[in-house]
Amino acid sequence: MKLGRIRTPWWHRALERLIALFASSAILAVVAIGIFVFREAWPLLVDDDALTDQGGLSSLFRPQLWPGYDEPLHVWQPVGFPGKLDVIPLVVGTLKITGLTMAIAIPLGVGGAVFLSEVAPRRLREWVKPAVELLAAVPSVVVGFFVLAILAGGVQRAFDLTYRLNAFVAAIGLAFAVVPVVLTITEDALRTVPRELVEASLALGARRWQTTLGVTLPAAMPGIAAAVVLGFGRAIGETMIVLMASGNAPVMGLDPTSSARTLTATIAAELGEVTPGSDHWRVLFLLGALLFVVTFALNELGRWVVLRLRRKLRAEDVAPISGTTRRAPAAAEVAP
Protein backbone atom coordinates (compact mmCIF):
# COMPACT_ATOMS: atom_id res chain seq x y z
CA MET A 1 0.00 0.00 0.00
CA LYS A 2 2.70 2.45 0.93
CA LEU A 3 4.74 1.64 -2.15
CA GLY A 4 2.29 3.04 -4.67
CA ARG A 5 1.88 6.35 -2.88
CA ILE A 6 4.01 9.34 -3.65
CA ARG A 7 5.05 10.98 -0.44
CA THR A 8 4.13 14.65 -0.27
CA PRO A 9 6.87 16.74 1.29
CA TRP A 10 5.88 18.27 4.60
CA TRP A 11 6.17 21.79 3.23
CA HIS A 12 3.53 21.08 0.62
CA ARG A 13 1.03 20.47 3.33
CA ALA A 14 2.28 23.47 5.30
CA LEU A 15 1.83 25.67 2.25
CA GLU A 16 -1.66 24.29 1.69
CA ARG A 17 -2.57 25.17 5.24
CA LEU A 18 -1.11 28.63 4.81
CA ILE A 19 -3.04 29.27 1.62
CA ALA A 20 -6.24 28.00 3.22
CA LEU A 21 -5.60 30.43 6.07
CA PHE A 22 -5.16 33.32 3.64
CA ALA A 23 -8.36 32.36 1.86
CA SER A 24 -10.36 32.09 5.04
CA SER A 25 -8.94 35.34 6.42
CA ALA A 26 -11.05 37.23 3.91
CA ILE A 27 -14.18 35.50 5.20
CA LEU A 28 -13.07 36.08 8.77
CA ALA A 29 -12.55 39.76 8.06
CA VAL A 30 -16.01 40.13 6.57
CA VAL A 31 -17.58 38.31 9.51
CA ALA A 32 -15.59 40.38 12.01
CA ILE A 33 -16.56 43.66 10.35
CA GLY A 34 -20.20 42.55 10.26
CA ILE A 35 -20.16 41.61 13.94
CA PHE A 36 -18.45 44.87 14.91
CA VAL A 37 -20.88 47.06 12.99
CA PHE A 38 -23.98 45.19 14.11
CA ARG A 39 -22.86 45.02 17.73
CA GLU A 40 -22.65 48.80 17.98
CA ALA A 41 -26.06 49.23 16.35
CA TRP A 42 -27.73 46.36 18.23
CA PRO A 43 -28.80 48.28 21.40
CA LEU A 44 -30.91 50.55 19.17
CA LEU A 45 -32.94 47.56 18.09
CA VAL A 46 -33.41 45.86 21.45
CA ASP A 47 -33.18 48.53 24.18
CA ASP A 48 -36.46 50.16 25.04
CA ASP A 49 -34.76 53.34 26.20
CA ALA A 50 -32.86 53.87 22.94
CA LEU A 51 -33.89 57.03 21.10
CA THR A 52 -36.51 57.85 23.75
CA ASP A 53 -35.78 61.56 23.27
CA GLN A 54 -37.37 61.46 19.86
CA GLY A 55 -39.86 58.63 20.18
CA GLY A 56 -38.22 55.24 19.82
CA LEU A 57 -36.80 53.29 16.92
CA SER A 58 -39.63 54.06 14.50
CA SER A 59 -38.85 57.78 14.82
CA LEU A 60 -35.85 57.16 12.58
CA PHE A 61 -38.22 56.67 9.66
CA ARG A 62 -41.24 58.82 10.44
CA PRO A 63 -41.85 62.53 9.89
CA GLN A 64 -42.22 64.49 13.11
CA LEU A 65 -43.38 67.93 14.14
CA TRP A 66 -40.09 69.16 15.60
CA PRO A 67 -39.99 72.36 17.68
CA GLY A 68 -39.55 75.35 15.40
CA TYR A 69 -41.03 73.66 12.33
CA ASP A 70 -44.41 74.35 10.76
CA GLU A 71 -45.21 70.81 9.66
CA PRO A 72 -44.07 67.24 10.33
CA LEU A 73 -40.86 66.62 8.41
CA HIS A 74 -38.02 64.17 7.98
CA VAL A 75 -35.03 65.98 9.46
CA TRP A 76 -31.42 64.85 9.81
CA GLN A 77 -29.69 67.33 12.14
CA PRO A 78 -28.08 65.11 14.76
CA VAL A 79 -26.33 68.03 16.45
CA GLY A 80 -28.97 70.46 17.59
CA PHE A 81 -31.37 71.49 20.28
CA PRO A 82 -32.62 68.76 20.30
CA GLY A 83 -30.70 66.56 17.86
CA LYS A 84 -32.89 65.11 15.14
CA LEU A 85 -32.12 61.67 13.77
CA ASP A 86 -34.32 60.78 10.83
CA VAL A 87 -32.50 58.66 8.28
CA ILE A 88 -35.02 59.05 5.44
CA PRO A 89 -33.31 62.13 3.91
CA LEU A 90 -30.07 60.13 3.80
CA VAL A 91 -31.73 57.11 2.18
CA VAL A 92 -33.40 59.42 -0.35
CA GLY A 93 -30.09 61.14 -1.07
CA THR A 94 -28.31 57.82 -1.53
CA LEU A 95 -30.96 56.45 -3.89
CA LYS A 96 -31.08 59.71 -5.82
CA ILE A 97 -27.34 59.79 -6.47
CA THR A 98 -27.06 56.05 -7.08
CA GLY A 99 -30.02 56.07 -9.48
CA LEU A 100 -28.58 58.97 -11.44
CA THR A 101 -25.20 57.27 -11.54
CA MET A 102 -26.68 54.09 -12.97
CA ALA A 103 -28.68 56.12 -15.52
CA ILE A 104 -25.35 57.44 -16.78
CA ALA A 105 -23.21 54.37 -16.28
CA ILE A 106 -25.42 51.63 -17.78
CA PRO A 107 -25.76 53.16 -21.27
CA LEU A 108 -22.10 54.23 -21.29
CA GLY A 109 -20.78 50.98 -19.87
CA VAL A 110 -22.92 48.56 -21.89
CA GLY A 111 -22.73 50.67 -25.03
CA GLY A 112 -18.98 50.98 -24.71
CA ALA A 113 -18.64 47.24 -24.17
CA VAL A 114 -20.75 46.47 -27.27
CA PHE A 115 -18.62 48.87 -29.27
CA LEU A 116 -15.39 47.35 -28.04
CA SER A 117 -16.32 43.72 -28.49
CA GLU A 118 -18.50 43.91 -31.62
CA VAL A 119 -17.49 46.96 -33.63
CA ALA A 120 -14.06 48.27 -32.74
CA PRO A 121 -11.02 47.00 -34.61
CA ARG A 122 -8.74 44.84 -32.52
CA ARG A 123 -5.93 47.41 -32.35
CA LEU A 124 -8.29 50.05 -30.95
CA ARG A 125 -9.75 47.62 -28.43
CA GLU A 126 -6.30 46.74 -27.17
CA TRP A 127 -5.73 50.40 -26.36
CA VAL A 128 -9.14 51.38 -25.05
CA LYS A 129 -9.86 48.54 -22.66
CA PRO A 130 -6.72 48.94 -20.56
CA ALA A 131 -7.34 52.69 -20.52
CA VAL A 132 -10.83 52.17 -19.11
CA GLU A 133 -9.47 49.71 -16.57
CA LEU A 134 -6.89 52.32 -15.59
CA LEU A 135 -9.75 54.74 -14.96
CA ALA A 136 -11.08 52.32 -12.37
CA ALA A 137 -7.72 52.47 -10.63
CA VAL A 138 -7.76 56.26 -10.19
CA PRO A 139 -8.17 56.89 -6.45
CA SER A 140 -11.66 58.16 -5.71
CA VAL A 141 -10.27 61.17 -3.85
CA VAL A 142 -8.59 62.29 -7.07
CA VAL A 143 -11.84 61.87 -9.00
CA GLY A 144 -13.65 63.78 -6.26
CA PHE A 145 -11.14 66.60 -6.36
CA PHE A 146 -11.38 66.82 -10.15
CA VAL A 147 -15.17 67.02 -9.95
CA LEU A 148 -15.08 69.57 -7.13
CA ALA A 149 -12.47 71.83 -8.64
CA ILE A 150 -13.16 71.66 -12.37
CA LEU A 151 -16.19 69.70 -13.49
CA ALA A 152 -18.76 71.19 -11.06
CA GLY A 153 -18.23 74.75 -12.26
CA GLY A 154 -18.45 73.71 -15.91
CA VAL A 155 -21.65 71.74 -15.38
CA GLN A 156 -23.17 74.63 -13.42
CA ARG A 157 -22.42 77.09 -16.25
CA ALA A 158 -23.56 74.69 -18.97
CA PHE A 159 -26.95 73.97 -17.39
CA ASP A 160 -27.33 77.23 -15.41
CA LEU A 161 -27.81 75.38 -12.12
CA THR A 162 -28.45 77.05 -8.77
CA TYR A 163 -26.19 74.72 -6.85
CA ARG A 164 -22.63 74.15 -7.98
CA LEU A 165 -22.33 70.95 -5.95
CA ASN A 166 -25.37 68.77 -6.50
CA ALA A 167 -26.58 65.21 -6.98
CA PHE A 168 -26.11 65.33 -10.75
CA VAL A 169 -22.46 66.39 -10.53
CA ALA A 170 -21.82 63.76 -7.87
CA ALA A 171 -23.42 61.15 -10.15
CA ILE A 172 -21.11 62.15 -13.01
CA GLY A 173 -18.17 61.75 -10.65
CA LEU A 174 -19.45 58.38 -9.46
CA ALA A 175 -19.88 57.30 -13.08
CA PHE A 176 -16.09 57.60 -13.44
CA ALA A 177 -15.82 54.81 -10.88
CA VAL A 178 -18.81 52.75 -12.02
CA VAL A 179 -18.48 52.80 -15.84
CA PRO A 180 -15.20 50.80 -15.81
CA VAL A 181 -16.86 48.13 -13.64
CA VAL A 182 -19.90 47.84 -15.91
CA LEU A 183 -17.86 48.06 -19.09
CA THR A 184 -15.21 45.46 -18.33
CA ILE A 185 -17.62 42.88 -16.96
CA THR A 186 -20.07 43.41 -19.84
CA GLU A 187 -17.26 43.17 -22.37
CA ASP A 188 -16.06 39.92 -20.85
CA ALA A 189 -19.63 38.61 -20.94
CA LEU A 190 -20.07 39.53 -24.60
CA ARG A 191 -16.82 37.88 -25.57
CA THR A 192 -17.69 34.61 -23.88
CA VAL A 193 -20.94 34.21 -25.81
CA PRO A 194 -20.59 30.85 -27.65
CA ARG A 195 -19.33 31.43 -31.15
CA GLU A 196 -21.83 28.97 -32.65
CA LEU A 197 -24.68 31.24 -31.67
CA VAL A 198 -23.17 34.19 -33.51
CA GLU A 199 -22.14 32.13 -36.51
CA ALA A 200 -25.55 30.46 -36.74
CA SER A 201 -27.22 33.84 -36.72
CA LEU A 202 -24.93 35.21 -39.43
CA ALA A 203 -25.34 32.03 -41.48
CA LEU A 204 -29.11 32.48 -41.36
CA GLY A 205 -28.66 35.84 -43.03
CA ALA A 206 -28.95 38.18 -40.06
CA ARG A 207 -26.97 41.39 -40.28
CA ARG A 208 -24.16 42.15 -37.95
CA TRP A 209 -26.24 44.56 -35.81
CA GLN A 210 -29.23 42.20 -35.86
CA THR A 211 -26.99 39.49 -34.50
CA THR A 212 -25.63 41.78 -31.80
CA LEU A 213 -29.05 42.93 -30.64
CA GLY A 214 -30.92 39.65 -31.13
CA VAL A 215 -28.33 37.03 -30.23
CA THR A 216 -25.16 38.31 -28.56
CA LEU A 217 -26.74 40.73 -26.10
CA PRO A 218 -29.48 38.34 -24.91
CA ALA A 219 -26.93 35.56 -24.57
CA ALA A 220 -24.65 37.82 -22.52
CA MET A 221 -27.53 38.97 -20.32
CA PRO A 222 -26.37 37.17 -17.15
CA GLY A 223 -22.98 38.88 -17.38
CA ILE A 224 -24.57 42.25 -18.08
CA ALA A 225 -26.90 41.80 -15.11
CA ALA A 226 -23.93 40.99 -12.94
CA ALA A 227 -22.13 44.07 -14.26
CA VAL A 228 -25.07 46.30 -13.41
CA VAL A 229 -25.50 44.85 -9.94
CA LEU A 230 -21.80 45.13 -9.12
CA GLY A 231 -21.75 48.66 -10.52
CA PHE A 232 -24.72 49.53 -8.32
CA GLY A 233 -22.90 48.11 -5.30
CA ARG A 234 -19.86 50.20 -6.12
CA ALA A 235 -22.00 53.33 -6.49
CA ILE A 236 -23.91 52.87 -3.24
CA GLY A 237 -20.74 52.19 -1.24
CA GLU A 238 -18.55 54.89 -2.74
CA THR A 239 -17.78 57.61 -0.20
CA MET A 240 -15.08 60.05 -1.16
CA ILE A 241 -16.53 61.26 -4.46
CA VAL A 242 -19.98 61.96 -3.03
CA LEU A 243 -18.48 63.53 0.08
CA MET A 244 -16.61 66.04 -2.08
CA ALA A 245 -19.07 66.62 -4.91
CA SER A 246 -22.62 66.25 -3.62
CA GLY A 247 -22.83 69.28 -1.32
CA ASN A 248 -23.86 67.00 1.56
CA ALA A 249 -27.12 68.75 2.33
CA PRO A 250 -29.72 66.27 3.68
CA VAL A 251 -32.43 67.38 1.26
CA MET A 252 -35.65 65.44 0.80
CA GLY A 253 -36.97 65.25 -2.75
CA LEU A 254 -35.65 63.84 -5.97
CA ASP A 255 -34.60 66.96 -7.88
CA PRO A 256 -31.27 65.96 -9.47
CA THR A 257 -29.99 69.54 -9.47
CA SER A 258 -30.35 69.93 -5.72
CA SER A 259 -27.82 68.69 -3.21
CA ALA A 260 -27.95 65.29 -1.50
CA ARG A 261 -26.36 63.65 1.50
CA THR A 262 -25.59 59.95 1.23
CA LEU A 263 -25.33 57.29 3.94
CA THR A 264 -21.62 56.81 3.30
CA ALA A 265 -20.76 60.52 3.37
CA THR A 266 -22.74 60.95 6.59
CA ILE A 267 -20.80 58.20 8.33
CA ALA A 268 -17.49 59.57 7.06
CA ALA A 269 -18.25 63.16 8.06
CA GLU A 270 -19.81 62.57 11.46
CA LEU A 271 -18.30 59.47 13.06
CA GLY A 272 -15.05 61.23 13.98
CA GLU A 273 -16.61 63.66 16.45
CA VAL A 274 -19.55 61.77 17.87
CA THR A 275 -19.64 60.59 21.49
CA PRO A 276 -19.19 56.79 21.56
CA GLY A 277 -22.29 55.04 22.84
CA SER A 278 -24.65 57.95 22.16
CA ASP A 279 -27.79 57.53 20.07
CA HIS A 280 -26.13 59.46 17.24
CA TRP A 281 -23.17 57.04 17.33
CA ARG A 282 -25.44 53.99 17.26
CA VAL A 283 -27.53 55.37 14.42
CA LEU A 284 -24.36 55.90 12.37
CA PHE A 285 -23.49 52.25 12.95
CA LEU A 286 -27.03 51.29 12.03
CA LEU A 287 -26.50 53.12 8.73
CA GLY A 288 -23.29 51.15 8.30
CA ALA A 289 -25.16 47.92 8.99
CA LEU A 290 -27.78 48.94 6.47
CA LEU A 291 -25.11 49.51 3.81
CA PHE A 292 -23.54 46.18 4.73
CA VAL A 293 -26.85 44.34 4.29
CA VAL A 294 -27.74 46.14 1.07
CA THR A 295 -24.42 45.49 -0.67
CA PHE A 296 -24.46 41.88 0.55
CA ALA A 297 -27.99 41.42 -0.78
CA LEU A 298 -27.05 43.04 -4.07
CA ASN A 299 -24.14 40.65 -4.53
CA GLU A 300 -26.35 37.68 -3.77
CA LEU A 301 -29.02 38.98 -6.11
CA GLY A 302 -26.44 39.41 -8.84
CA ARG A 303 -25.21 35.86 -8.38
CA TRP A 304 -28.74 34.49 -8.38
CA VAL A 305 -29.64 36.34 -11.58
CA VAL A 306 -26.49 35.12 -13.28
CA LEU A 307 -27.06 31.50 -12.27
CA ARG A 308 -30.69 31.53 -13.26
CA LEU A 309 -30.17 33.17 -16.63
CA ARG A 310 -27.16 31.04 -17.44
CA ARG A 311 -29.04 27.88 -16.62
CA LYS A 312 -31.92 29.00 -18.80
CA LEU A 313 -29.59 29.84 -21.64
CA ARG A 314 -27.79 26.50 -21.44
CA ALA A 315 -30.77 24.26 -20.92
CA GLU A 316 -33.30 25.72 -23.30
CA ASP A 317 -31.40 27.58 -26.00
CA VAL A 318 -27.94 26.19 -26.31
CA ALA A 319 -28.48 22.50 -25.70
CA PRO A 320 -31.05 21.86 -28.48
CA ILE A 321 -29.00 23.78 -31.03
CA SER A 322 -25.60 22.30 -30.34
CA GLY A 323 -27.12 18.84 -30.08
CA THR A 324 -25.89 16.08 -27.87
CA THR A 325 -22.22 16.96 -27.72
CA ARG A 326 -22.64 20.14 -25.60
CA ARG A 327 -19.59 21.75 -27.07
CA ALA A 328 -20.48 25.31 -26.17
CA PRO A 329 -18.09 25.76 -23.26
CA ALA A 330 -15.17 24.26 -25.17
CA ALA A 331 -15.90 26.50 -28.13
CA ALA A 332 -15.97 29.50 -25.87
CA GLU A 333 -12.58 28.58 -24.56
CA VAL A 334 -11.13 28.19 -28.00
CA ALA A 335 -12.67 31.34 -29.40
CA PRO A 336 -10.21 33.91 -28.10
Binding site: W66, G68, G80, F81, Y163, G247, N248, A249, P250
Partner: peptide
Protein backbone atom coordinates in the same frame (compact mmCIF):
# COMPACT_ATOMS: atom_id res chain seq x y z
CA UNK B 1 -26.65 77.36 15.56
CA UNK B 2 -26.73 78.63 19.13
CA UNK B 3 -26.04 82.32 18.61
CA UNK B 4 -27.39 83.11 15.16
CA UNK B 5 -30.11 80.52 14.63
CA UNK B 6 -31.34 80.78 18.22
CA UNK B 7 -30.94 76.98 18.60
CA UNK B 8 -33.16 76.26 15.59
CA UNK B 9 -32.00 74.05 12.74
CA UNK B 10 -30.16 74.92 9.59
CA UNK B 11 -32.22 74.75 6.41
CA UNK B 12 -31.90 71.28 4.89
CA UNK B 13 -30.44 72.87 1.74
CA UNK B 14 -27.38 74.17 3.62
CA UNK B 15 -24.36 72.58 1.97
CA UNK B 16 -21.92 71.11 4.48
CA UNK B 17 -18.28 71.69 3.71
CA UNK B 18 -15.33 70.23 5.58
Amino acid sequence: KEHVLDRFDFAAETQSLP
